[in-house]
Amino acid sequence: MGFDGDRAEPCTRCILLAEIDRADEHFRITTRRSSDDLDLSLQRLGLLTAPLVLPGIADTSS
């Protein structure tokens, strides 16, 4: 790793899905698009690994 900023740790908090900009694919790696296979596990087990997000303009300005 280059420097400490590269080791930034995320903090977990509850956010509204509507606030997540799904159109921003700048950091997208995954080629698979379909997510149908996740429905059952989400319904029965919940969200096991929280998505990783960057704060948006509204967040950073506050």
Partner: peptide
């Protein structure tokens, strides 16, 4: 992305996110 899409489809309003 896929998790967020699935949660939306299931009608969830909020999720824990890092």
């Amino acid at each position: 992305f896929r998790r967020v899409d699935a949660c939306r489809r299931l009608g969830w309003e909020a999720v824990p996110a890092r």
